[in-house]
């Protein structure tokens, strides 16, 4: 754990230097051309004549063929380096260098999360586009459903051969440490079995989920004043102490309040879904699903007991059932 924290601090020190840094300039290797437009339109199923039909385009408001607007950053993507080429290991610009840094520290996952593009003018055949990129921001490490990750904002400015700005893009990507090994799922099964979202395990709450994995329902107890709290958090709300210890709960309690969710239905859950606020006998409350009874039978004050059960995907969760 100590080495993990040290490595994280080391990475974050390096990341600070990247915020505000120039992430490189990418001149498009090809001028805006009909071949790439044709491939793009074929894949997207886009039959808009202004992209491919010279006569129709000439008579349109564009006065000639234009490139599909969403292609803006396709022109300036880094050139292809074959993976068997030694150059593949070398970053071709600052942004790639930054991504390689994340790879080195185990943040091997990458997904785009936000893509905000403004198009000042449509590109015409023969335009020569260059993108200049700046790293605008890097978030703190955050727990996400995919794993612990950092959000990176890169601003792209696109300019043409006359140095006129033709568009801009704010692209946010997330680099993450994959939370679990992927199971080789057949393509057919992928869309048929969505599961519950795995719990985000961060610095302040991973210990609680590890307890659940061992079959223990734990409660966080302030070491200074003894007050219990849930969900886990770093500071005691009563005395502001940062010292705490885990205490095992017997798992019995009563329904303090509940709600029954019918809609919207999120894949991975069974509906109607009963979400209970359970007052544990030890004296704090916990939110969990109540199972083992019809939603209509549920009442405030009902005596319930905790069961830690395995759900799809192998993770464990606490559920409450009416006490026998």
């Amino acid at each position: 754990m100590a080495t993990d924290a040290k490595r994280k601090a080391e990475l974050e020190e390096k990341l600070r230097d990247w915020v505000g840094a120039d992430a490189g300039s990418c001149p498009a290797p090809d001028v805006v051309n009909g071949q790439m437009i044709r491939h793009w339109c074929a894949v997207m199923g886009d039959s808009n004549p202004v992209y491919q039909d010279a006569e129709a385009a000439k008579n349109s408001i564009h006065g000639g063929i234009v490139a599909p607007p969403a292609m803006m950053n396709a022109w300036t993507m880094p050139p292809f380096v074959p993976p068997w080429d030694d150059l593949a290991a070398e970053a071709t610009d600052g942004e790639q260098e930054l991504h390689q840094l994340f790879e080195q520290y185990g943040y091997t996952g990458v997904v785009g999360t936000d893509h905000d593009m403004e198009i000042r003018r449509y590109l015409r055949l023969g335009d020569e586009i260059t993108a200049s990129k700046v790293v605008e921001a890097i978030s703190e490490e955050k727990p996400t459903p995919l794993g612990l990750g950092y959000f990176i904002d890169v601003r792209w400015i696109f300019r043409d051969q006359n140095d006129e700005e033709v568009g801009s893009l704010l692209f946010r990507t997330m680099r993450y440490q994959p939370a679990q090994e992927a199971m080789p799922v057949s393509s057919a099964a992928v869309s048929s079995v969505p599961t519950r979202l795995p719990p985000p395990k961060g610095h302040d709450n991973a210990w609680w989920w590890e307890g659940i994995d061992r079959g223990e329902l734990l409660i966080q107890k302030c070491s200074a004043c003894g007050v219990l709290r849930h969900p886990p958090r770093p500071m005691c709300g009563e005395c502001q102490s940062l010292d705490w210890e885990p205490e095992a709960s017997a798992g019995s309690g009563t329904v303090y309040s509940f709600t029954v969710l019918h809609h919207p239905q999120v894949p991975g859950y069974e509906y109607p879904l009963v979400v209970g606020l359970i007052e544990l006998d030890e004296g704090t409350r916990i939110v969990a699903n109540v199972v083992g009874c019809e939603p209509g039978e549920l009442q405030i004050g009902l005596v319930v007991e905790a069961h830690i059960e395995k759900v799809e995907g192998g993770m464990k969760l606490p559920f409450f059932r009416p006490a026998r």
């Binding site: 349109s60 408001i61 564009h62 607007p69 969403a70 893509h115 905000d116 593009m117 198009i119 449509y122």
Partner: peptide, 13 residues
């Protein structure tokens, strides 16, 4: 239609 001009694409993935 073909002469609609896309000015901004702001997408969250």
């Amino acid at each position: 239609g073909p002469e609609a001009v896309v000015r901004r694409l702001h997408l969250k993935l």
